[in-house]
Structure formats: C-alpha cells, structure tokens
Amino acid sequence: MTEQLALFADNSSAPEGLRYAADFISPEVERELIARIAALPLQPFQFGQYQGKRRVASFGFRYDYTERRLREADFIPDWLGPVIEQVETFGGPRTEIAQVLCTEYDTGVGIGWHRDRPHFDRIFGLSLGSPCKFRFRHPAGDKWERFTLEAQPRSIYLLSGAAREVWEHSIPAVEAPRYSITLRTMRD
C-alpha cells in the first residue's frame, strides 16, 4: 500500500500496484488543460460498431477496435510536454509515455468495466474538472473483491502490477463534467 492511499478510510482492499497522488497539478494548470482538451476535435469513443458517450482524442497511438490492432495516431501536442515530463518523473526511471488519450465526460457519462489493451504497460490517469469514483473489481471465488478510489480533480493515479493486470476498472456516470488525460507506456 502506498502512503498516498493512506488518505482513504478503507485502503485494506486496494489493488496492489495502484498508486495515487492528490494535487498533482495546480488549479491554473488544470484550467489550461481543460481548455486545451475542450478545443480538440474530440470524437465519440468508437468500440467496434458501438459508439460511447464520452468524447476522445488519441495521440501517439490509438487502438482500433474494428481491426483489433494498434494504429499510429497524431503526434502528441507540444502543450502536453510539461505534463508528460511531470508524469514520467512520477513514474520513475525508464518511464516513457508513448500514448495519450484525452477524454471528455459530460454529466451522466461514465465508462464500463474493462482493462486497458495489452499493448500498453503502465497506465497513468490525470483527473480534471470534477471528482469521480474510480472503481476496481476482480473475481474472488464466487464473488467480486471491490475497491473504490475517490479520484479528486488535479490528482493522478498509476496502474501497474496487479492493479493493471488482474483488476478491472470503471467509472460510473459522473455528476458534473469531467476531463481526463490517460498516459500510457508501451509493453516491451
């Protein structure tokens, strides 16, 4: 368990490999990032033939669910450089961000249970705009073991190890507009 998770009342069931830090960026940087994301040509998330309600823009790489393969995407914009440097420092030596996904969640929009595609290794998420419940689950016998992280605006989480490989995660419908920047390293 990391000291960052000690801020939460019940962290006894927190997934191994989950790391969280509040106030990762300043309110000023948060406002600038939200404005930058809102100005992107965001498109509804495509999951094969299905269209999600959240809107996204991918950089570096994107996963094509129809073709079931990783494809190159637009270059990562320069304005993300300072955030990427900060995330790579948070991630430690040999952390190299290769993919970025900017997401807009309108009120009432969430994301279902999933694990990120196996092409990616460690997953970092920067939460912007409003808090959300970041839920985790994995099978434990005939039941589910669960954990919920209250991800606050301007916070960051890291998924590695079991939190990345064993546990699924989801976000229920948000109560206010929310943005996120997901930053991923590539699997060797």
Rank of each mutant, 00 (worst) to 15 (best):
Q4D: 06
R137C: 10
V174W: 00
L7P: 02
I97C: 03
R31S: 13
R154H: 05
R115N: 09
I97H: 03
D116M: 04
R146E: 11
F120Q: 07
W144C: 13
S13G: 14
P139C: 10
R55P: 08
H169M: 01
W113H: 09
R117C: 12
P41S: 11
C132Q: 00
H138C: 14
P44E: 03
F24E: 01
Q51K: 12
P77N: 10
F8D: 03
E72F: 15
A38D: 15
R187K: 15
R62F: 13
I97W: 04
R164C: 01
I76W: 08
R19S: 04
G141K: 10
A176G: 05
L70D: 10
E145L: 13
E88V: 11
I34G: 02
S12K: 15
E175N: 05
R164Y: 02
S13D: 14
W144S: 13
Y20N: 00
Q46F: 09
D142I: 14
P41R: 12
P82T: 08
I181H: 02
L158W: 00
R146D: 11
A57Q: 12
P27W: 03
E85T: 12
S160K: 11
E16R: 14
F120E: 03
A151K: 01
C102E: 01
E67L: 14
Y105A: 01
Y157K: 01
F75D: 15
D23R: 09
P131G: 07
G141P: 08
F134H: 00
Q51M: 10
